[in-house]
Design a protein around this nucleic acid. Structure first.
Length: 571
DNA sequence: CTGGGGATGGGGCCC
DNA sequence: AGGGCCCCATCCCCA
């Protein structure tokens, strides 16, 4: 909300761009308003030249859509190219690139990476080129045809895009950005602002996820002769710690790579990708799948023998058929839970508070919300007059009375009553002082035994005046400095809160990327992926994998121990 | 920086 | 199988 000088009011519609993209994709699938058909070895792909010109330098040039090329006639209008034969781009790759253009998500199979790279090079989709090269570990130069002004223009656009990403986030958007990044196309948590009303939760033409996924996809997908045996794209099926972790950037599981472009965030599901999301390990199960007809009715993974990461941390799980989300590939446990999950992608909020009009994705949340209006606080503290809306608030509160602080920082040994506070402490700068100050004390006679060693914190064998570059860069006190979340949040949101890997300047970002060495990735998402794959490993946090304080604490203890061991090795 | 309240999304149990 | 209800983990915001 930014009142202008003339009393102008700027009302942001944050979902507008992604919704437009979503609609365009729907039109493409339905063949509506398509003014360009791409062909590759017999496969035909109806599309929109404006979209292609927006995403591809090749088409931009082809249609004369470059800045300053607004010459009249054919060039300016880009007319005359109703069919564009692209046999040099493999159909699978072309399909993946089109999906990328319309969903901001590139989902490809590892084995098809080179084709996609070639296609992206030919079409001048630099970000895809970069991404593929990173995956493939290549460090090639510029796209062959992208030279001179085109390159300057491309670079300018990239800079603008980066600038938008990092500069335009305001506080009000921070949470949303983080969350969006957290799960691919995570929709935005509802906030009772103007958007609530201007963006109806169930736009009439917007079908429910189930319908959407079920009907929109198969019939309009251009026939690709190779699709059946060789699905063009692949995603991941592995469920990692989702919530706010997984999906931050790209993910790679079982040879498949799947990552969203950061800026184009669809609040609606980018139409479900075909069955090709099955990873290589799962290909044998393809026959069980829906035969290329993705559906939100999902694939009963249990029947397919998919390890659903029974990672239930303690609580025994009823054997309910897990279902896989066609958008984020997350495996949803529990019968009937998938529609609920899907609303996190669609942004649909069917449950409206009759009192204040606030809408919710879930009725149980609405129910809790209603307590605000009724004044009901059903969880009274037995020790004091405090009453709470949520049971877990009471639980938190009770720890205050008990004085219990079961969550202890393994580095500075500060104890917290709440696990999330400990996490915040570990991610933040709270321990920095301990760590950086402890260093100089190291040396003969400064041995504090195990406790001291821990208190000094881990490190990488750099002296105080010669800090670990990464430490120096991000001033991350803990190993969690390398936690993918920290990196991703920071990268995705330049205005991120303290404690996260925030790069104030582009140079910082570049430096960080450079310092990552083998994980050097110019893409935020890829950076995250690199961090995850290279530093922590894909299996770092398994979905649903117990997050009991004990487990978490044990993990952290391990981290601290590892760091301490590194210290000793360095000495 | 920390404590605390509230919000959100996922999973388990039950009907 | 679907959905209600509840708990949990995690996040954000504010004081």
């Amino acid at each position: 909300m930014s009142p202008g000088e003339d009393g102008l009011i700027g009302i942001p519609f944050p979902e507008h761009s992604s919704e437009i993209l979503f609609r365009l994709n729907a039109q493409r699938r339905a063949g509506l308003l398509c003014d360009l058909t791409l062909t590759s070895r017999g496969a035909r792909y109806p599309t929109h030249r404006s979209v292609m010109a927006a995403v591809s330098l090749y088409f931009r040039g082809l249609f004369g859509a470059e800045e300053g090329a607004e010459a009249g006639g054919e060039a300016g209008g880009g007319g005359g190219f109703s069919v564009c034969q692209l046999d040099c781009v493999a159909p699978d790759a072309l399909d993946a690139l089109l999906e990328f253009a319309y969903t901001a998500t590139l989902t490809i199979r590892s084995s098809g990476m080179r084709d996609v790279l070639r296609g992206a090079q030919l079409l001048g989709i630099q970000c895809v080129v970069d991404a593929c090269r990173d995956i493939l570990g290549e460090t090639a130069g510029e796209v062959e045809w992208e030279t001179g002004e085109e390159r300057v223009q491309a670079e300018r656009e990239r800079r603008v895009e980066r600038g938008m990403k990092k500069g335009s986030r305001r506080k009000i958007d921070r949470r949303r950005v983080t969350k969006v990044e957290s799960s691919h196309h995570q929709p935005l948590p509802h906030r009772p602002n103007i958007n609530t009303h201007q963006h109806p939760s169930t736009p009439p033409p917007h079908p429910s996820p189930v319908q959407d996924g079920a009907h929109s996809h198969p019939s309009t997908r251009p026939p690709s002769p190779e699709q059946d045996e060789h699905p063009p794209t692949t995603g991941q099926n592995g469920e990692r710690k989702q919530g706010r972790d997984a999906g931050r950037g790209s993910t790679a599981v079982n040879g498949g790579v799947h990552w969203p472009q950061e800026r184009l965030l669809a609040p609606h599901p980018p139409l479900p990708l075909s069955d090709d999301r099955l990873s290589e390990d799962e290909e044998e199960m393809e026959g069980v799948g829906n035969g290329g007809v993705p559906s939100f009715t999902s694939v009963p993974l249990a029947e397919q023998g998919v390890a659903t990461g029974a990672g239930g941390g303690g609580r025994k799980r009823k054997s309910q058929t897990p279902q896989q989300c066609p958008v984020c590939q997350k495996i949803i446990h529990g019968a009937g839970k998938l529609p609920r999950h899907m609303r996190t992608h669609t942004g649909e909020k069917p449950f409206e508070c009759s009192t204040c009009g606030v809408r919710f994705t879930r009725n149980d949340k609405l129910k809790i919300h209603m307590r605000k209006h009724t004044g009901e606080r059903p969880y009274p503290c037995p020790h004091c007059p405090a009453r709470f809306l949520h049971s877990y608030d009471l639980k938190n509160h009770l720890s205050l009375h008990s004085g219990a602080r079961p969550f202890e920082c393994p580095l500075c040994h500060k104890a917290f009553a709440r696990e999330d506070h400990l996490q915040r402490h570990r991610k933040g700068l709270s321990c920095l002082e301990v760590r950086t100050r402890a260093r100089p004390r190291r040396g003969p006679g400064a041995d504090h035994g195990e406790e001291g060693r821990k208190a000094r914190g881990g490190g990488r064998g750099y002296s105080p005046d010669q800090l670990d570059p990464l430490e120096n860069l991000a001033l991350q006190p803990h190993a969690s400095a390398f936690h993918p979340r920290a990196g991703m949040v920071g990268l995705g949101d330049g205005a991120g809160a303290g404690g996260q890997m925030v790069f104030q300047e582009e140079a910082d970002r570049e430096q960080a990327i450079a310092l990552l060495g083998p994980h050097r990735l110019p893409y935020p998402g890829l950076l995250w992926r690199g961090l995850e794959l290279g530093v922590r490993g894909v299996e770092g946090e398994e979905a649903g994998g117990g997050h009991s304080p004990a487990l978490q604490h044990a993990r952290w203890e391990e981290e601290a121990e590892e760091e301490a061991e590194e210290d000793e090795e360095d000495e």
